[in-house]
Nucleic acid binder design. Structure first.
Lengths: 224, 224
DNA sequence: TAAATAGTGTTGTTTTTACAACAAAAAGAG
DNA sequence: CTCTTTTTGTTGTAAAAACAACACTATTTA
C-alpha cells in the first residue's frame, strides 16, 4: 500500500522497516482519513482515543478560550503527530483543535496501543518508543522557543524573535513561514493590525522584507 | 545511603526498587551536590553532560536575553528533572540557567547513560524509559499551559489564567505559588509594578486575596 | 539589635498596544 | 471572467502597559 512509504518518513516510525510497520498496523488499529483545507480534523474537547499522525499536508493547532478569541499554538507538517503529548500524559480529551491548513492525509493510531507496547521483545517496539521520546523532547524544545517569543514585551521583539528562530531552523535568511498575517498575529498573541503596521515599519527601515508567507531578514541576526 | 530513599520518590525512578537504583548508580555515574538558596546550580550556556535531578528543595529555570532582561520559565520541585528535554533532544548546552530558590540537594546523572540504556534486558530500564516519557509529556503539558497564560492580552487575564491553573492543580481556592511578586512578573512576562497594581485592584474588587506567596480566589472560577 | 538588602505597593508620565473602521488587493467560487 | 470572500495595509483613538522614581515593609546579615 502506497501509504506505508509515507509512514516510514514520519518521526515516530523513523528507522522502522516497511514490513515491520505492516506488522504493527493491526496491533495499532491504524486507519486513514482525508481532509480538505480549512476542515476540522479534530475539534477542541473531543475524547482522545487516537494519536493523529499527519502523512500529507499541514495543520494548525488552535485554541479558543471562553471569550471566543482564537490563538494558534503551532503548525504541524507531514511526519509530525498531534495528541502525542496529551496521550503520553494520560489525558482523556484533546485540549485544542486541529485544523487542516492544506489538504491532509492523516493516520489514526490507537493511543493505548502506541504508548503501552505489547510485551514481546521485538526491537521495533523499542525503536518506536525511542522515537516517541525524541518526538516529545522536540515538542518541548519547540514550546520553549515559542515561550521565548511570547516573553518579549514589544511586538517588534516578538516578531523578530520568531523570524530569527525560523531563519536559524531553515538555515537561511530567506525562508517561508506557515502562517499568513492573521495567523501570525494569532500565533504571537498580538493584534493583527498592530502586527501589520509593525511589519510595514520594519520593511521601510530595511530590516526585513516579505511577500505573502515568504520573508527575508536583511540585517545581521545578532544585531537585532 | 539515605539519598536513595529520596530517589525512589522522583518522577523518573518511580516504581524502581531501591536496590535496583543502587545497581544503576554506577552505570548512570550519579553524583550528589548541595546548593544554598539563590546559588546557581547550572549557568546558562553550560555544556550539557548531566541531567540534574532535584532531590530536595526547589529551583527556578531562568533565561536572560541579549538585552539582559530576565524571565522565569518555570519552578521545579524535588522529584523533577532539569535538562531532560534538552538531553533527549540531543542538545549540547543548557539553554537556560537553574537557580536554587531554596537550599537544594541535586543528583547528577550522565545524560548519555540515562537516555541510551545499556542493552541488557532488565525491566527497570524499561520502567525508567517509560517514566522519562511521562516526564517529557508532563513538561509539554506544563508548557502548553504556560503558553495559554502568556497568550492572554491583558495583565489581569494572564494573572487570573495562571492563578486558576494553580488552583485547579492544587485542588483548592486557597493555594501557595512558588514565586514572589518580582518572580511572578518575570514568569508572566509583565512589568512588576504593573502586576503589583493589578493585583491590588483585584484585591480591592474582592476577586482575589493574597499574602506573600499565598493566594485565595474568592469568585467562582468559571465566572472570571 | 542595628544596618543593609530585598521585596512590595503607589503614582505619574511616556510609550506601546488594542480596537475599530475602512479601502485596496488577492484569492477563490460559480 | 465576474462576483464574492478573504487577506492585507492604513489610520486615528482609546486603553493598557512599560518605565521610572520613591516610600515603606520585611527579611537577612553582621
Amino acid at each position: 500500500m502506497e501509504n506505508f512509504s509515507l509512514i516510514k518518513k514520519t518521526q515516530i516510525f523513523d528507522g522502522v522497516e516497511e514490513n515491520d510497520v505492516q506488522a504493527m498496523a493491526h496491533c495499532f488499529r491504524i486507519r486513514f482519513r482525508n481532509y480538505n483545507k480549512n476542515n476540522v480534523i479534530s475539534p477542541q474537547g473531543a475524547p482522545l482515543e487516537d494519536v493523529i499522525l499527519l502523512l500529507k499536508g499541514s495543520a494548525n493547532i488552535e485554541n479558543m478560550d471562553a471569550t471566543g478569541s482564537v490563538s494558534v499554538l503551532m503548525n504541524i507538517k507531514a511526519g509530525q503527530c498531534y495528541g502525542l503529548v496529551e496521550a503520553c500524559h494520560g489525558d482523556e480529551c484533546y485540549s485544542s483543535s486541529l485544523i487542516a491548513s492544506e489538504n491532509c492525509l492523516v493516520m489514526l493510531i490507537a493511543k493505548h496501543r502506541l504508548i503501552n507496547p505489547c510485551e514481546n521483545k521485538c526491537p521495533r517496539h523499542l525503536t518506536v518508543i525511542k522515537n516517541i521520546m525524541h518526538s516529545l523532547a522536540s515538542r518541548g524544545m519547540y514550546f520553549m522557543d515559542k515561550i521565548n517569543h511570547l516573553t518579549k514585551k514589544k511586538i517588534r521583539e516578538k516578531v523578530l524573535s520568531y523570524l530569527k528562530s525560523q531563519s536559524i531552523r531553515q538555515n537561511s535568511t530567506y525562508f517561508d513561514i506557515p502562517y499568513n498575517k492573521t495567523e501570525l498575529a494569532e500565533y504571537l498573541a498580538v493584534d493583527r493590525s498592530a502586527l501589520s503596521s509593525e511589519l510595514s515599519k520594519m520593511k521601510a527601515e530595511g530590516i526585513i522584507d516579505f511577500d505573502k508567507k515568504h520573508y527575508h531578514i536583511k540585517r545581521d541576526l545578532d544585531s537585532i
